[in-house]
Simulated scan of single mutants.
Amino acid sequence: MLVPIGFVVVLSCVFGGYWLGGGHLEVVLHALPLEFMVIGGAGIGAFLISSDGHLLKETARNFKLVFAGPKYKKAHYIEILTLLFLIFKTLKTKGPKAIEKDIEAPHESELFKSFPLFQKDHHAVTFVCDYLRLIVLRVENPLEIDALMEQELGVISEELHHGSHALQTVADGLPALGIVAAVLGVIKTMGSIDQPPAILGEMIGSALVGTFLGVFLSYGIVGPFASKVKGIHDSDCKYYHAIRAAFIAHLNGSQPAIAVEFGRKVIADTVRPSFAELDEAVTSIGQSKAA
């Protein structure tokens, strides 16, 4: 909800302030379509040159993401920590072989079916199952797994941020493209230097709209959009960091309840479940499994 409100505030304050200050909106509105064609078209073209099909799809998804917000909410964190508690408890009491069927066929796993938000998340399921598979294969050195997780999380973060980096690059280039549009307008004006001052003034004003539009789009629209996308992806990366923290605590010998507490503590405060909420979820799922 804040995103559309923000766009309305930006547009209202910029154009409203100009109009209230005595500016003639018709001059800006008259020049806007062609200037937008030059600046926006060049920006989109440059983006296409520097992108591939995957990045284009990712950018399209980012437009939806900005209005939807972070993917992982408190319910997702409660689910994953409760699931990890059950997995760690099973590993402690029954050994690695007890979860082998679950990790080889996660979408058929009765254990995972109790956690629908997690089971529907292909990337999270793959991430968890890959490291559980290493445990089943007796790769249990915490330092080795922690180093591998750190490298994979770096790859995940880099992939998630491709779209926001590309948008920020476009935002950084828009003021320069605005200057290009303005220079073209000045060239057009110089070709009509024999015209009366009133006409020349209007032509110069139209040319300056290009500079205005490039800076406005960069700092008022595209830049904040890219920043919003980056913030959402930073938030979503915390999900994997929570899994990592819990895994490493387990491999260092912590009891299941302590291991998931390590994971809980690295979650952002806005979506972090309280100790009581997590304890209630763990107790509830434990009772249902016992029944």
Rank of each mutant, 00 (worst) to 15 (best):
M1G: 10
G6H: 02
V9P: 01
V9K: 03
V10N: 07
G16C: 08
G17V: 08
L20Y: 12
L25S: 10
L25V: 08
E26G: 10
L29I: 13
L29Q: 01
A31L: 00
L32C: 03
P33M: 00
L34G: 15
E35R: 15
V38S: 07
V38M: 02
G41K: 07
A42D: 11
I44F: 13
I44S: 03
I49Y: 01
S50V: 00
G53C: 04
G53H: 12
L55N: 04
L56V: 14
E58M: 11
A60R: 13
A60L: 15
A60H: 03
R61T: 12
N62W: 12
F63S: 02
V66F: 15
F67P: 03
G69L: 08
P70V: 14
P70K: 09
K74P: 03
A75E: 15
A75V: 04
L83H: 09
L84P: 08
K89C: 10
K89S: 13
K92Y: 11
T93A: 10
K94E: 10
K97Q: 09
A98G: 05
I99G: 04
I103A: 01
E104W: 00
E108R: 11
E110T: 08
F112H: 06
P116T: 00
Q119D: 06
Q119C: 12
K120S: 13
H122L: 11
H123I: 02
V125D: 09
V128K: 12
L134S: 05
V136W: 04
L137D: 12
V139S: 06
P142A: 02
P142H: 00
D146K: 14
D146V: 09
D146C: 11
A147E: 13
L148M: 14
M149T: 03
Q151F: 03
I156R: 12
E159T: 12
L160I: 12
H161Q: 14
G163A: 12
G163K: 04
S164H: 11
S164W: 06
T169W: 10
V170P: 11
G173T: 06
L174R: 13
P175F: 00
A176S: 14
L177S: 10
I179P: 00
V180Q: 01
V180M: 04
L184I: 13
G185N: 10
V186T: 04
V186Q: 01
I187Y: 01
T189P: 09
T189H: 08
P196K: 03
L200Y: 01
G201A: 05
E202I: 02
G205Y: 06
G205R: 08
L208R: 11
V209H: 02
V209T: 05
G210I: 09
T211H: 08
F212H: 02
S218E: 08
V222G: 11
V222F: 14
G223A: 06
F225H: 06
V229P: 02
V229N: 03
G231D: 15
D234N: 15
S235I: 08
K238T: 09
Y239N: 07
A242M: 08
R244M: 01
A245Q: 07
F247I: 14
L251G: 00
N252L: 05
V260C: 06
E261L: 02
G263T: 04
I267P: 14
D269C: 05
R272N: 07
R272H: 06
P273V: 09
E277T: 14
E277V: 12
E277K: 12
L278M: 13
D279M: 01
V282D: 04
V282E: 01
G286T: 02
Q287F: 07
